[in-house]
Amino acid sequence: MSLEIVKSFLNAVENRDLIQAKKYLSPSSIMIFPGGKFIKDLDSLAEWSKTRYKFVKKTFSTFDEIKEGNKSTIYSIGILDGIMNDGKEIKNVRYIDRFVIENAKIVNMQVWNDLAESILVDKE
């Protein structure tokens, strides 16, 4: 159930169907992105994303689920591909998303990836 919620949420975000994606989020959900950046809602996420990349696509590799009472923690592991705003290609960049699900809603989402590291390596 929790795993389906996460997959559906990720698919909706990727399809830019924010109305559908919002249905999976608790009103008090917390989203923290790389750089420790808090995003208060999906509209803000869309705005913030625009300042960074033209598009990014996730390829899901693994989903791990840990259940604890009525709470589930799900890790989505995979790679990112896309194009940054400066035209630089994003290719095979690792990511991990962590979701906490309570009462069939995402209450906490944290995102880590190697995007910054890949840019640094390109500069070296």
């Binding site: 008090s28 959900s29 923290i32 750089g35 808090f38 208060k40």
Partner: peptide, 17 residues
């Protein structure tokens, strides 16, 4: 911080990683 952001006590936040 998430609660403060969701309840509009604060507008923006970045945490040290």
């Amino acid at each position: 911080l998430g609660f403060a952001l969701n309840n509009k006590l604060i507008e923006d936040v970045v945490i040290a990683k």
